[in-house]
């Protein structure tokens, strides 16, 4: 069954609805994805601005179904690994909730990015210039799917070790992909990175509308 594309539920079979949050309308939800290699600062970035303590959940489920045999034992052992996904939430004026989802950082988890990224405003690709290659999968992924993204160089020791121009040519990203320095621990820097993502998405949308 496809999940019904309606925000209105069927009449409550289990009884009348209870008042909800003093009748407050449901928030509009949006999300931005935070990608990058292992230990590049994704969780730190999310935590620097999230209203809630960053949460972690098991996001991966294998594509196939798990069988339960007659003895009540699970017959398929392939699903013994899961992937930790971190996320946070920011409440914005106008009854808006912005979720920040961190991607698991390795190539072999790309299959679950589709799920995380579907419907996102855009993405921040965090980069540690000492391990630049770790961001290649993320850059390739967002580029190939036409998802607005920003490359944010996390300055671990508070110093920029490489010029952004060098990083740009090493990554081979076009000029319309913003490149910025950031500090995942700094709320102000994180804020600026998110602003840049939203601006990039708005430019895309405006260009698509007129062109």
């Amino acid at each position: 069954m496809a999940f019904p594309r309606s925000d209105v539920a069927a009449p409550a079979a289990a009884g009348p609805a209870v008042p909800h949050q003093g009748g407050q309308a449901p928030p509009t939800v949006v999300k931005i994805v935070v990608a990058g290699g292992f230990a590049v600062g994704k969780t730190t970035f999310i935590g620097s601005i999230s209203d809630i303590e960053p949460l972690s959940t098991e996001a991966a489920m294998t594509e196939h179904s798990v069988g339960v045999d007659d003895a009540g034992m699970v017959s398929d052992r392939k699903t013994s690994t899961t992937v930790a996904m971190d996320f946070g939430r920011i409440t914005l004026p106008g009854n808006l909730w912005l979720y920040l989802f961190g991607t698991p950082g390795q190539d072999r988890f790309l299959f679950m990015w589709d799920d995380l990224v579907r419907g996102a405003i855009g993405a921040v690709v965090l980069v540690d210039t000492d391990r630049l290659d770790q961001c290649f999968p993320a850059v390739d992924y967002f580029e190939s799917r036409g998802i607005p993204f920003v490359v944010a160089v996390n300055c671990f020791e508070g110093v920029a070790r490489h010029a952004l121009d060098d990083v740009r040519s090493a990554l081979a990203v076009p000029a319309d992909v913003p490149l910025i320095y950031t500090d995942a621990r700094s709320r102000a820097a994180t804020k600026q990175a998110l602003v840049t993502v939203v601006q990039t998405a708005m430019r895309r949308l405006a260009a698509g509308a007129t062109g």
């Binding site: 920011i90 914005l92 004026p93 808006l96 912005l98 405003i121 939203v198 998405a201 708005m202």
Partner: peptide, 8 residues
């Protein structure tokens, strides 16, 4: 998006 931008 504009509301999100202003909010952030």
């Amino acid at each position: 998006l504009e509301s999100v931008l202003n909010g952030i």
